[in-house]
Simulated assay, not measured.
Amino acid sequence: MASSKKWASIISSIASCVYFLVIILQVPLFRVPCTAGICRTPIEVTSSQLIACELFPLVVVKALLYPGAFANALIKNRSIPSYDSLKLYKFTNVKAADAISELQRLEVLAGSYLSVAGALLGLIKPGRMSLCGMLLIVWGLVREIILRKSTSTTHVYIYPAMSIALFSAFLSITKDVRRIIRSCKRPRNVKAKLF
């Protein structure tokens, strides 16, 4: 029988890969107004902010957006876009002045940055960054819905896929998974005393 440390590392690596795929393939997790219109994934929020602030060259933003565009083309049975002809969705007209309005949803913005970074770094070494990012996003969206900060609450919505991302982000933390496995094991002495 494998030790709890080995099981925890296996579960953590699988959860980290699932989280990476959910984030990079741009599975819609939420719907929130952003500088580019309506954003549905952490990568869209991050990309709109990176383009508006001109922090990174467009090549980096295209590299973030291409796997999602590729998966979207396969799912919708469309032609696969080439990397050079990849349009930056609705982000081409985003300006730095529009990026300031994004600061109203600071939790969603910071959570999106942490989620994308956690997905990328989680392949090397899973950690807490992805869970912190997902919790920030959920907190920002729930706060927005409760406080009704937007003009219409129909603009803010949390999709059911958010639970998959949140659960896989939690399971990507090896130490926490190891504690869960240890708490689920029954002591053998108690079992022997019962019979």
Rank of each mutant, 00 (worst) to 15 (best):
residue 168 S to E: 04
residue 18 V to L: 13
residue 48 S to E: 12
residue 70 F to T: 05
residue 2 A to N: 05
residue 144 E to A: 09
residue 119 A to D: 05
residue 17 C to Y: 11
residue 41 T to K: 08
residue 137 I to G: 01
residue 3 S to Q: 00
residue 17 C to M: 09
residue 130 S to K: 03
residue 155 H to N: 10
residue 126 P to H: 05
residue 72 N to V: 01
residue 69 A to H: 04
residue 133 G to H: 03
residue 102 E to A: 12
residue 70 F to W: 13
residue 142 V to R: 06
residue 102 E to P: 01
residue 28 P to I: 05
residue 89 Y to L: 15
residue 43 I to S: 01
residue 140 G to T: 05
residue 70 F to A: 09
residue 183 S to L: 12
residue 158 I to Q: 02
residue 39 C to M: 06
residue 91 F to S: 03
residue 80 I to V: 09
residue 108 V to F: 06
residue 88 L to Y: 03
residue 99 A to F: 09
residue 124 I to W: 14
residue 103 L to N: 08
residue 152 S to H: 14
residue 2 A to S: 10
residue 131 L to W: 02
residue 14 I to P: 00
residue 110 A to I: 10
residue 35 T to S: 00
residue 184 C to A: 13
residue 121 L to H: 06
residue 81 P to S: 08
residue 152 S to I: 11
residue 83 Y to Q: 06
residue 10 I to D: 11
residue 9 S to I: 08
residue 135 L to Q: 04
residue 57 P to G: 12
residue 82 S to V: 12
residue 58 L to P: 01
residue 145 I to Y: 13
residue 21 L to M: 09
residue 72 N to E: 14
residue 68 G to C: 07
residue 160 P to A: 09
residue 182 R to V: 07
residue 72 N to S: 12
residue 42 P to H: 08
residue 40 R to N: 10
residue 185 K to H: 14
residue 115 S to F: 06
residue 133 G to V: 04
residue 42 P to I: 01
residue 195 F to T: 09
residue 101 S to E: 01
residue 81 P to T: 02
residue 69 A to S: 13
residue 189 N to Y: 11
residue 184 C to N: 12
residue 164 I to E: 02
residue 112 S to F: 05
residue 138 V to S: 06
residue 142 V to T: 09
